[in-house]
Amino acid sequence: MKRPFRHLFSFLAVTLLAVAGLTGCIATPDSAGGDPGAIRIGTLRGQPHLYAPYFMQRFAPAGTTYEIVLFENSPDIKNALASGAVDIGVLGAPAVLAGVAAEQDVHIIASAADGGSGFVGLPQIRTPQDLRGKRIGFPAGSSQEIALKLTLRAHGLDPDTDVQLVNLAYSDMASAYSSGRVDAFLSAEMGVSLARQAGAHEIVSPYETSIGATNIVVGGNGRFLDEHPDRARDAVRAFARAIDFMKGDRAAWAAGLVETFGLDPAVTDIAIGNVWLRWELDDEFRGRVTELARQMVDFDQLPAAPDMQKVFRTEFLDTVGAQ
Rank of each mutant, 00 (worst) to 15 (best):
A232C: 02
W279Q: 10
V267Y: 03
L91C: 09
G46P: 00
R286Q: 15
I243M: 07
A95D: 02
A254D: 13
F55T: 01
A110K: 06
M173W: 04
A110T: 06
F185A: 13
G133D: 00
G33A: 01
M56S: 00
R6T: 10
T260F: 03
D282P: 08
P159A: 12
D264E: 13
Y170F: 12
V218K: 03
A154T: 05
S179R: 15
D269R: 15
V86Y: 04
D283M: 04
L263A: 07
T151I: 03
S74H: 14
L186N: 06
Y54K: 03
W279L: 09
S142T: 15
I203Q: 01
I272Q: 08
D162W: 12
V192P: 04
V204D: 03
R288G: 06
G156Q: 08
G191D: 12
A305I: 01
C25R: 14
E145D: 13
S83H: 10
L152K: 03
A174L: 07
R132K: 15
F59W: 07
F71G: 07
F245R: 13
G212M: 07
R40E: 01
Y66S: 04
V182T: 10
D249W: 02
Q301C: 09
T43K: 11
S210M: 09
R288Y: 12
F11P: 04
K310R: 15
S83W: 05
F11S: 11
N79R: 14
A93R: 12
G63D: 00
A147T: 02
S111R: 10
Q104D: 11
D130N: 13
P123I: 09
E259C: 07
P61I: 05
S117E: 13
L131W: 05
T214G: 07
I136W: 02
G287R: 11
V100Y: 10
L292N: 01
G199C: 05
F9M: 10
R40P: 03
V96Q: 07
D283Q: 13
D234M: 01
T290V: 02
S117T: 08
V217Q: 04
N221H: 13
D130L: 10
L157Q: 02
A93F: 06
S142E: 07
I109E: 05
R40Q: 06
E259N: 10
D244P: 12
L263Y: 09
D105E: 13
